[in-house]
Amino acid sequence: MSTNSNNEQSGHNEGYNFAYLDEQTKRMIRRSLLKALSIPGYQVPFGSREMPLPYGWGTGGIQVTASVIGPKDRLKVIDQGADDTTNAVSIRRFFQMVADVATTEKVLEASIIQTRHRIPETPLNEGQIIVYQVPTPDPLSKIDPRESETRKMHAYAEYGVMQLTLYEDIARFGHIAKTYDYPVLVNGRHLMSPSPIPKFDNPKMQDNPAIQLYGAGREKRIYAIPPYTTVKSLDFDDHPFSMQSWSGCCSLCGSTTSYLDEVITDDSGGRIFVCSDTDYCNDRQAQLLCDEHSEVQT
């Protein structure tokens, strides 16, 4: 079943406010979201609350979703691209319980998509909102853990150190050896962590028609990319940004363009590759079946 509007196992929990957060907290987060959209890629500090799920497990994304979601919404939750990974299931159940919200696995049916580590393969539309769970919002914190320093670098757009770090890779390996959480420059001004999505997904952020919101609960930061905004992955003229690619295709749906996960199938190291985006893969498998079926009929 890909959609359901009411989960008999959970049911709305009367003991808590709609979507768990109290209205005052939602207002504070909503104000932060509006400012985040006004300054694309800038991390807005916000009064993150403790949630009933642990920090690091999506509390930032959950707080953003809880502040945005309403009864008319349909929510999709993915982790590693999949709707059925345990943490995605757990977060979806949380919203069914505290907001009694309709859910879906279909990208195009969802008004809000909360994600960890992936952007769906299916392009998003105007009006859709994608909420990213972010563990480490500041790309500069790996270079200097002192917030007082990184805050200055952001204030004056002093991003030379980041560029230098990437260049050290080139000097050593001949190419940039960063594969995920690959830093981007948003609207030509703010350096931003795209969250730990593979760099394969980075180009999807650029000029996306949807609203992209990022929540980091433990680090208490919210940021955003408005629709149709320039999002440039850092690179060099002589070493342009490049994405991962696979020589094979998905063993289930045959896709040659999606992000593939490696699955080990036996003790002797046998392995296959399958789409990380389960909704996309299921759709393609259904389409293949359909095509085969119609071929038989004709």
């Binding site: 709609f18 509006l34 959209l37 945005v68 009864p71 609203i211 408005p226």
Partner: peptide, 17 residues
């Protein structure tokens, strides 16, 4: 609760587009 949510979504849309 729901009026505020609906108005916020309008504001979010207006600021995003």
């Amino acid at each position: 609760i729901f009026d505020a949510q609906s108005v916020f979504r309008a504001a979010l849309s207006a600021n995003a587009y």
